[in-house]
């Protein structure tokens, strides 16, 4: 039993470190802000969550310390990080950052342009 739990701890922490490394490589390699936001906001979340889970299991099983704070940390990370990724990419888009050349389609462009035109010509509050 102890061996299985220790293997589980090693696996979760390894997975966490690997995904954190993937995040870093992704940020370095990806071409534009949106694709980087993918790497930064998600693989990092899963990586850190996985590490926290490993730490939680380690302290629970090997040290006999049931740490609620770690679980809360996992939940908070889980709730806040997608919002962070969403806000970053939305702010970038609204500020007019161009997506990379590779981008094959853009459904959002016309909507944003239309909204911008409307707010430019008349101050519409209902938009």
């Amino acid at each position: 039993m102890s061996v299985i739990i220790n293997i589980l701890i090693v696996i979760t922490i390894t997975v966490g470190v690997v995904f954190t490394a993937v995040t870093t490589i992704g940020i370095l390699r990806f071409p534009d802000v949106y694709t980087r936001a993918h790497a930064a906001s998600k693989s990092a979340t899963l990586g850190v969550m996985s590490i926290l889970l490993g730490v939680f299991i380690h302290f629970w099983y090997n040290e006999g310390l049931f740490s609620i704070q770690l679980l809360l940390g996992i939940i908070f990370l889980f709730v806040t990080s997608p919002i962070g990724g969403h806000l970053m990419s939305r702010a970038a888009y609204m500020a007019g950052v161009k997506p990379t050349e590779l981008t094959v389609g853009d459904d959002l462009k016309e909507v944003v342009e239309k909204a911008r035109k409307e707010s430019g010509s008349l101050k519409s509050e209902d938009q």
Binding site: H38, P82, R90
Partner: peptide
């Protein structure tokens, strides 16, 4: 949108 954003490969922009 949170679920879509957290599954890699997709981010909700607007």
């Amino acid at each position: 949108s949170s679920l879509i954003t957290l599954t890699p490969g997709t981010i909700v922009v607007n």
